[in-house]
Design a protein around this nucleic acid. Structure first.
Length: 149
DNA sequence: TACGGAAAGT
DNA sequence: ACTTTCCGTA
């Protein structure tokens, strides 16, 4: 099992999550990408046209909602995807504690990284050019690994 | 813009 | 299970 996806919080710092994050429990063989994986992919690539990190830890801003929806639709083979429907999927993340809304800030949401288990996966090297988060990573600002998990 | 119920799709 | 689709409501 290797880490499959990389999200970046201000290069060169990186966030890894393991292979099993792609697999819904009901379907061990499924590799269907989930929306929050996709968002972290785009954020990690620093492709700032559609989406970018916000000012706080885990916060992100959708800069071009319909463009983001189009990209998501392409990934999932849903040509009629739009922001209305994508945002409904984001709202389903509220109860699951994967995301919450940054109230008062347009198109701004925030990852609940503590729930996402976005910590380094011990025993595996980071992809080239990336750095694994550790307890002492300065941008964690005093948040411990135990807190994140 | 944003929310969340309801039902359908994969 | 995780959306996608649709839509009434605030």
């Amino acid at each position: 099992m290797t880490p499959r996806c990389v999200g970046v919080w201000g290069k060169p710092n990186a966030v890894l999550f393991p292979d099993w994050a792609y697999k819904p429990a009901w379907s061990p063989g499924s590799r269907q990408v989930q929306l929050w994986h996709f968002l972290l992919e785009l954020l990690g690539r620093g492709e700032g046209a559609a989406i970018g990190w916000g000012g706080e830890w885990g916060e992100f801003v959708i800069r071009d909602p319909e463009r983001l929806a189009r990209l998501w639709g392409e990934r999932k083979g849903k040509p009629h995807m739009n922001y209305d429907k994508l945002s409904r999927a984001l709202r389903y993340y509220y109860n699951k504690r994967i995301l919450h809304k940054t109230k008062g800030k347009r198109f701004t949401y925030k990852f609940n990284f503590s729930k996402l288990i976005l910590v380094n996966y011990p025993g595996y090297p980071p992809p080239l050019g990336y750095q694994v988060i550790t307890k002492s990573s300065p941008f964690l600002k005093g948040v411990t690994m135990e807190t994140l998990i």
